[in-house]
Design a protein around this nucleic acid. Sequence first.
RNA 1: UCAGCAGACUGUCUUAUCGCCCAGAUUUCAUUUUUGGGAGGAAAGUCCGGACACCAUAGCACAGUAUAGCGGGUAACUCCCGUCAUUCGCAUAUGCGGAUAGGACCAGUGCAACAGAAAGAAUGUACAGGUUAUGCUGUAGUGAAACCAGGUAAACUCUAUACGGUGCAACGUCAUGUAAACCAGCGUCUGAGGGUUGUGCGCCCAAUGUUGGAGGGUAGGCGGAUGGAUGUUUUUGGUAACAAAAGCACUAGAUAAAUGAUAAGGAUCCACUUUGGUGGAGACAGAAUCCGGCUUACAGGUCUGUUUUUUUU
Length: 124
Amino acid sequence: MNQRYGKEEKLKQKKQIETLFTDGNSLGQYPIRLFYLRVTSENIHQPTRTGVSVSKRNFKNAVDRNKIKRLLREAYKKNKYLVNDLNSHPYWLMIVYVGKEIPELKPLDVAVMKAFKKLKKIKK
RNA sequence: UCAGCAGACUGUCUUAUCGCCCAGAUUUCAUUUUUGGGAGGAAAGUCCGGACACCAUAGCACAGUAUAGCGGGUAACUCCCGUCAUUCGCAUAUGCGGAUAGGACCAGUGCAACAGAAAGAAUGUACAGGUUAUGCUGUAGUGAAACCAGGUAAACUCUAUACGGUGCAACGUCAUGUAAACCAGCGUCUGAGGGUUGUGCGCCCAAUGUUGGAGGGUAGGCGGAUGGAUGUUUUUGGUAACAAAAGCACUAGAUAAAUGAUAAGGAUCCACUUUGGUGGAGACAGAAUCCGGCUUACAGGUCUGUUUUUUUU
């Protein structure tokens, strides 16, 4: 199973992120919230891009935010197979952590999996 | 031997699997394979000082702000070192450790508790001297200080020294589409109005013609950008901070932002214990242009100094 998460699979450009937040939809699966957007035809040859985010309001220290983002990436890596075969159409995704406490990997893993399954159901 | 305080150093290790960022090598149509490197003592707060970059809206004068024993170090500093004075604590013959907004009040202005008649455009009371008498002189009394006297400048002020502003989202450069709104030189006219750091001077902008160049804003790529006031060892100079010379080393460069996750084991500490083990804990905190400081946070461990308690001599 491919569990790589390289540069070309990260959502990086500011413009793309703004578009995702303004035009995209979202679904909640506590303690995360998933923003998603079906990409337009001009970007159809690119892979699915995913970003992670943690609010500065809930976690003041940069160390904690980094920790959570790393855990989110780890959870994404394990569950990415669920979104990669999504009608073979690329998506832009943003996983936002909305919890108030530093999580463990396992519940986060489950949450991401459930969120991706929900997404899959919606698309069908 | 126990505990406290101060300072310095350190601040979990190994293996396996799955991954991330950078650089090199290899190979290919894409790419693959492989080697090496990958957070801190504070990376933090952004409080000082620089390097670097741009801007006459940048200059000059006044104003303003900062610093303040003396000597030295440094690229520079509100930093560091030495030393003097004052002062606090411990000792008390010498000493040890800490603190100090420690220049100037015979340039001027102001302020001053209590006591005292009076702290100054004042001259009381008592006594004595002197005088025709008053003015005058001395003494007493209050107080730190009573006349051509002092104290106070975290009071104005004066003196000396320094200080333009904005910050790498600086700035340079590449290139796609849009559009003629751009920039530079020269000529002509108006010099009204606007801009600037508080004020004045100065400076800049603004109209039009012409010549030349390609330029501007937005998003993106690249440079800036990591080899440097670098680290370390030795020698020399110096009380020291530090400097010089020689040798060796290369030590993160991301950009919605890498340095991680899982499993097993070993040290360390804590609790329980059937002495076999079992369970738990590891602080403060994450580079963002780069350096020198300061300040603040910090579990545990090591070392040094100092004080106290207990035991033995």
